[in-house]
């Protein structure tokens, strides 16, 4: 990870178009976020908090009402740069069925590079690499509609990887999946980030996914209300609950016990951390 900025939201506001006379309220209000190269950022928020709008703003699918979004210094409002921006930042959406274009897995993954006018031999190479990176290479000749939800979503991720973007933004990629599918997709995301150095922005409302990120941003009614490491962010129980979210059960339990005088450290996020801390506390290791 370095300090170079990849996506920068500067005083960004956005409003969806209304069907009638009265304009809708702002979906995004004067937001400032700086996503650095190589980071794994989770953006949390309840439905309608504006978090999905950020995904579309990040690669010029929609443009801010006011303020600017910069991708490696390129302003998304500059129409000439649209292509360059989308080659830097790719987006995967919630419903895997609605983002797969072709009838064969590998042909779908090839769709992006084909649009970019890349040489056939190079596309082949990219498609194979992309499919291998999400563990879907054996399925390259399958029909997408016969795959499981988790597999479809990994094909969608491969589709973005084949464009060799530096950053992949995933808009609730696991919301429609079962636990197994969620785990598969989560593994792929971590691999892209940790092993291949891609910047990953995961938009979600699952806390246990956010725990695995380097940085967590919490959105509430169009504003950023928290921004920090998972440990920092999850210590603010009240702000999290006000944002319509819930802490992981392990954190909630730890906080509750602390309030009742049990000696536990701050920032417990997972069951394993809880168990360790609890045993340590009872063994008298931390008694004052």
């Amino acid at each position: 990870m370095n300090n170079e900025s990849l996506i920068r939201f500067c005083d960004v506001s956005y409003r969806y178009e209304s069907d009638n006379e009265t304009p809708l309220p702002l979906a995004i209000k004067n937001i400032n976020i700086d996503i650095k190269k190589g980071e794994f950022v989770a953006i949390l928020g309840h439905n309608g908090s504006g978090k999905s709008t950020l995904a579309k703003l990040s690669n010029a699918i929609i443009l801010p009402e006011s303020g600017n979004v910069f991708v490696e210094g390129m302003d998304t409002a500059d129409e000439k740069l649209e292509y360059d921006i989308r080659q830097k930042v790719g987006v995967v959406f919630q419903n895997p069925d609605n983002q797969i274009v072709a009838t064969i897995v590998e042909e779908d993954v090839a769709f992006g590079p084909e649009n970019l006018g890349i040489e056939p031999a190079e596309i082949r190479q990219r498609v194979d690499d992309a499919l291998k990176s999400v563990g879907m290479y054996e399925y390259r000749l399958h029909e997408p509609h016969k795959l499981s939800g988790g597999q479809k979503q990994r094909v969608a991720i491969a589709g973005v990887m084949a464009m060799q973007t530096d950053c992949i933004v995933l808009d609730e990629p696991t919301a429609m999946l079962d636990p197994k599918g969620r785990e598969e997709v989560m593994k792929s995301m971590l691999r892209l980030n940790k092993e291949m150095g891609k910047t990953v922005v995961l938009i979600t409302h699952y806390m246990d996914e956010a725990v695995k990120a380097d940085r967590v941003i919490v959105m509430n009614s169009g504003n950023v209300v928290l921004d920090g490491t998972p440990r920092e962010v999850f210590s603010h129980e009240e702000i999290i609950e006000n944002a319509g979210l819930e802490l992981p059960d392990s954190s909630k339990l730890a906080l509750k016990l602390k309030k009742n005088g049990v000696n536990l450290p701050d920032g417990i996020l997972t069951p394993d951390e809880f168990i360790e801390a609890f045993k340590f506390s009872l063994s008298g290791g931390a008694s004052h």
Binding site: D208, D249, S250, L253, K256, N260, T270, P271, K279
Partner: peptide, 29 residues
């Protein structure tokens, strides 16, 4: 399985005599 259940079954393994039929944070606490 839910996180709470995981914590309780794990703690039980370490010899803590806890009841395991709790599933909510409040009951667990």
């Amino acid at each position: 399985i839910p996180q709470i259940t995981k914590i309780f079954s794990e703690l039980k393994k370490f010899g803590f005599n806890l009841s395991t039929d709790v599933y909510t944070v409040d009951d667990a606490a």
